[in-house]
Nucleic acid binder design. Structure first.
Lengths: 200, 200
DNA sequence: TAGGTAATCTAACAGCGTTAGCAGAATCTT
DNA sequence: AAGATTCTGCTAACGCTGTTAGATTACCTA
C-alpha cells in the first residue's frame, strides 16, 4: 500500500543521529554562544553537509526547540534530586538556590536558550513552551509544600533565583560571588515571608 | 599641507548624521531585537546604502558600542534624578528599584544590549565597558550613603535589581507583576541588612 | 573658481539558513 | 534473490548578512 509503517528499526537510527546532532550542537553553542550556532559547522561535526540536517530537523528553530526541551528535562532532574524538607525552609531554599545557580553556570548556552531571548528570531514552540510551564508549576507545588503560597511571595522568590543566577553568570562567570549568597538570601526571604504571620 | 584640521563645520554634520543613524538603530532594534539589526535596512532608514554607514562607524560592533555608551548615559541620568534620602532607606530603595525596572522595560533592546549577551559575537569595547564600570561605582557610592557598605549586601541588592527587572521583562512585558514588588523587596532587604547591627 | 577632501555609490566576497532536484544506498515486498 | 520503495545524503542555488575595494559625486575651503 501507500502509507506503510514508519519502519521501526529505521526510527532507532534516526533518533540516535538526532541525539548525535544535538550533542554536537550543545558543544558548538557552548563555544560560540547559542545564537552563534552554524548549521554548516554543525553538519560538519557529525560528518554531513548542512542540507542533510533537514532530514532530522525541520529547521534551525526545531533544533533550538529540541535543545530547549532537553534543558527543561535536565532542570526537572535537578529539582527531583533536591530533597524537600518542610521543617527547614531556609536550608531547603538555600540548597535550591545553589542548585539553580549551579545549573545555570554549568552551561551558558543552555541558560541563554532557556531564560533569555538570546536567539534573534526564535521563540519556543507551543509544545516546548508547555514543557517549561509544566516545570514551573512543579516548582510552585514544591514551594507550596514549604508554606509559600502567596503569589506575590512566589514572584519575589523567582526574582531572587533569576537575580542570583544572572548576576553570577554576567559578572563572575566561573566564580561564586553570588552563589555563595544563597544562604543569606534564603534567610532574608524566609524571615520576610514568615514575619507577622505565625502559624496559619 | 597634508593632514589639515578635521574641518570644524564638517564635524558638526558628521556628528548629526551619527546621531540620526543611532536613532534609527534604536527604532529598528526595538522592532527586531538588538541582534536582529540589519545594516542594509538601517542604511535605508537614513537614506543610504549599507557601505556608506562605514563612513560614520568602523563596523556594526562600533554601532553597538555607541548604543551601549548611550544606554549607560541614560541610566546615569535616571540615577541622578533619583533623590537619595538617607533617613528613608526603604523608600529610597523602593523608588530606585521601580526606576530601574522602568528603565529596563522602557527599551527591551537597550536592556538586551546593556545587561545580556544577546549579540552573538559582540562585547563592549574597553572604553564602553569603562563607562559601565563608572556607572556601577556611582551606584556603590549612592548605596554607601544609605549605610550599605558590606560588599555581600551590595551584591545581594544587585541580584534583586537584576532579578526583578529580568523577570518583569521575560514573563510580564508591559505589566507590573514584578515591578510592584519593589516596596516589599526593599523592606525585606533593609530589614535584613540592618538586623543585629544597630547604630554603627 | 580650482583643489582637495569627504561622502556615497556599485560590485563583489564569504558566510548564513533554506529549498529543489538528483544519486545512491538501505530496506521492505514479492 | 530480484524488484520496488523509501530514506539519506549530495550539489547547486536563492536571498539574506557584514564587510571591503575602487570609482564617482558632492561639497567645503582657500
Amino acid at each position: 500500500m501507500s502509507t506503510s509503517t514508519p519502519t521501526p528499526v529505521r526510527e532507532r537510527r534516526r533518533q540516535q543521529t538526532r541525539a548525535e546532532i544535538l550533542e554536537a550542537a550543545w558543544r558548538l553553542a557552548e563555544r560560540d554562544g547559542i545564537a552563534g550556532l552554524s548549521l554548516r559547522e554543525l553538519a560538519g561535526e557529525v560528518g554531513m553537509r548542512a542540507p542533510s540536517l533537514y532530514t532530522y530537523f525541520d529547521s534551525k528553530a526545531a533544533i533550538y526547540d529540541a535543545m530547549f526541551a532537553q534543558g527543561y528535562r535536565e532542570l526537572d532532574a535537578v529539582d527531583t534530586d533536591l530533597e524537600l524538607d518542610p521543617g527547614d525552609a531556609v536550608g531547603t531554599l538555600e540548597r535550591s538556590l545553589e542548585a539553580f545557580v549551579d545549573f545555570c553556570c554549568a552551561s551558558v548556552a543552555r541558560f541563554q536558550l532557556m531564560f533569555t531571548a538570546a536567539v534573534p528570531g526564535w521563540e519556543p514552540s507551543p509544545e516546548a513552551y508547555a514543557a517549561s510551564v509544566a516545570s514551573y508549576e512543579r516548582s510552585v507545588e514544591g514551594l507550596a509544600r514549604l508554606g509559600i503560597e502567596d503569589p506575590r511571595h512566589f514572584d519575589l522568590l523567582t526574582g531572587l533565583y533569576s537575580g542570583l543566577a544572572s548576576q553570577q553568570l554576567a559578572n563572575d562567570p566561573g566564580g561564586d560571588r553570588w552563589r555563595r549568597l544563597s544562604r543569606e538570601a534564603a534567610e532574608m526571604y524566609v524571615t520576610h515571608v514568615t514575619q507577622g504571620r505565625r502559624g496559619a
